[in-house]
Amino acid sequence: MSYALEVKQLTKTYRNGKQALQGVDLSVPEGSFFALLGPNGAGKSSLINILADTVKPTSGHVTFLGHDLFRERRWCKQHLGVVPQEIAFDPFFNPRDILKIMSGMFGFKPDLKWIDELLERLELSEHAHKNARQLSGGMRRRLLVAQALVHKPKVVILDEPTAGVDVELRKRLWDFMRELNTNGTTILLTTHYLEEAEELCDHVAIIDQGKRLTSQSMKGLLDSVGSSALVLQYAKPMSQQALLTLAQFSPRIDGDKILLCLKKDHSGKNNFNAVYQTAIQVLGEAKSVRIQNEDLEDVFLRITNEKKT
C-alpha cells in the first residue's frame, strides 16, 4: 500500500516544557478518508500544525507522498492543503480576493472557475464580495476550507472543519469532502462529532496525551475492539470494589447503568453468558439487561479511559 503520509516517532515539546507529542507514528493510506481522533489537548493540532509548517517539530520524520516533508517542503506544500483549527482571515480583503491571493502564493495563477465553484460549494457565493470582517463565524470557517482547496492539493488536512458550522451546511460540507475523496484526494480530519467520523471515514487513529492509542480501518476498530456491550441497569449505586472485580470486562459506568464489554470468539459467538453470570454474581440481579452494539463514541471513550486507569 502506498501512503500519503507516514509519520515516524514525531515529538513536540513546547517552550514551556509541555510534551504535546511523545513519539507518534501514523500512516495514512493514499486515497483514504482518515479520522484523527482524541480528546481536547491530545496533540491533534500540534501534529497537524507541524505538517502545515506553522509549528516546528522537536524530532521525528515524516514522509509525504514519498517525499521527505522536512527536507522537500516546497514540493510537499504545493500538494498539501490545511484547514487550521484557529479562525484566521485577512481583514483587508473579500473572500474572492483571499482565494485568489492564496492560489497565487502557492504559485498558481488563480483558476477563476475553480474559485467560483469553491465559493458555490461552500455556500459563500453571496458573500464573495463582502469584507471578510463581515462574515459570521461559520462562514469564516468555510472560507478556511476553500483556502485549503484552492490549489487543488492531493492531500487535505482539516482540523475541526465543522466546529461552529450548522447542521445543514455541515452535511453539505461532508458531501463535498466525500466527493473530493472519491476523486482521489486523501483526506485527514479531526472532529469531535464522532458519529460523523464513523459515517464518513474509512480509517481512524486515536491519540491521547501525545501518544497514539490505536490506528486501523474504521471497520476493523468497530469489529475487533468495539464488538458489543452488555448493559445492566441497577437501582443503587455501584461500588468501586465491584468494578475492580469486573475489571477483565473493561467496565464503564453511565449513570445508573454499567457497560461490560462482550468479546467474540473466532466462530463469531460472543461471551454473553460468561459475562452476565459473573456480573450478577458480583452486583446482584439487574433491573434491566440489554445488549448494545458499541458505536465509535463508546469505543473512543473506552480506549481513551483505559489508558488513564
Binding site: 502545515a52 509548517d53 506553522t54 504545493q78 490545511v82 484566521a88 492564496m102
Partner: peptide, 8 residues
Amino acid sequence: IFLMMAPL
C-alpha cells in the same frame, strides 16, 4: 499561518 503554509 498562510504565509508559512504556502510554498514561499
